[in-house]
């Protein structure tokens, strides 16, 4: 427990750990400006063919839609913010040469790596929760409450109270998705011993695999079920009108297995590693 506290302190003593929080604030603010000035136009564009036949009552540009749009940025931007910190957790110390000093003390490598890993996951959770709280609170205060309009294969409209728990669950799923990215970067951080390589390597893997998962490229369709990126976007499953709970649980388990897998690989690798720096 003490090691965990120290590792958490180490993370928050680094300036780069706050880049993520500042970037989230900036991102949320930009989405706010976009929605404030363009929200009605966007909605008008989506509903233009219906406006001749129907009249709409109620406010669809609301806090729930705002939080949903912010949440969508998880897919593209968030991994960058995550790996900036988690890709440096092991390699940072290796490059600084502090491991030798730490490991001569009576602390096992397993405990040290586990503490670092948990601290990394806590950081990711805090970052996602920070985004969730900022977007939900700012959205509610500025745009008010209302039904949530989501375009999946159809136009789905969820009542406000229904939308709220879907958003909360989606953000929680986002923690697991980003936890997987963090676990991969943690593993690469141990293997490469270089923060830059670990960060860029993780981003390259995530971008390429996300591309394969997102597009239906005929030759590569067969590998999609074996890529963790296929399951990372499953937070969107909470916004299907009829939610497939079994599929969501399966996707969640696949990601958790990846997180545990990367963690065990890191422990195995680090236990046998010669600390030479």
């Amino acid at each position: 427990m003490r090691i965990l506290k120290i590792e958490i302190l180490k993370i928050f003593n680094k300036r780069r750990s706050y880049i993520g929080f500042v970037a989230v604030l900036a991102m949320v603010f930009l989405v706010f400006l976009a929605m404030y000035y363009e929200g009605q136009d966007l909605l008008g564009f989506l509903t233009q063919n219906l406006e001749n036949t129907f009249v709409f009552h109620g406010n669809l540009i609301n806090g729930n839609l705002f939080a949903y749009i912010v949440l969508k940025s998880l897919w593209v931007h968030f991994p960058i913010l995550v790996v900036l910190v988690t890709g440096d957790l092991i390699s940072g110390e290796e490059q600084a040469g502090t491991f030798r000093m730490v490991l001569i003390r009576p602390v096992s490598r397993f405990k040290l790596i586990s503490a670092k890993f948990i601290a990394g996951l806590l950081y990711v959770s805090l970052l996602v929760l920070f985004m969730a709280i900022v977007s939900i609170v700012l959205g509610r205060v500025t745009f008010g409450n209302g039904d949530l309009l989501v375009l999946m294969q159809t136009v789905n409209i969820f009542p406000a109270d229904d939308a709220m728990w879907r958003l909360v669950l989606a953000f929680l799923f986002g923690i697991v998705s980003m936890g997987t990215v963090a676990a991969l970067s943690f593993f690469l951080s141990a293997v490469t011993g270089n923060s830059l390589t670990a960060i860029l390597g993780t981003l390259a893997i995530v971008i390429v695999l996300t591309f394969v998962s997102a597009f239906n490229i005929p030759v590569l369709v067969i590998v999609k079920p074996f890529l963790f990126t296929t399951y990372m976007t499953s937070w969107q499953s909470f916004f299907y009108f009829e939610m497939n709970t079994a599929q969501i649980i399966f996707d969640l388990l696949v990601l958790l297995i990846h997180i545990i897998g990367f963690y065990l690989l890191t422990v195995l690798y680090f236990n046998r590693k010669d600390i030479l720096s």
Binding site: L50, F54, V55, F56, H57, G58, N59, L60, G146, D147, L149, T154, V155, N156, I157, F158, P159, A160, D162, F241
Partner: peptide, 27 residues
Amino acid sequence: RMPDKKAHIEYRSPNHYKVESDGFLIL
């Protein structure tokens, strides 16, 4: 895809027409 919605409507001749609903409504 949306759930059934309840609302209250008021009409007063010749042109006053008011719809009150808790959420979004398509009419």
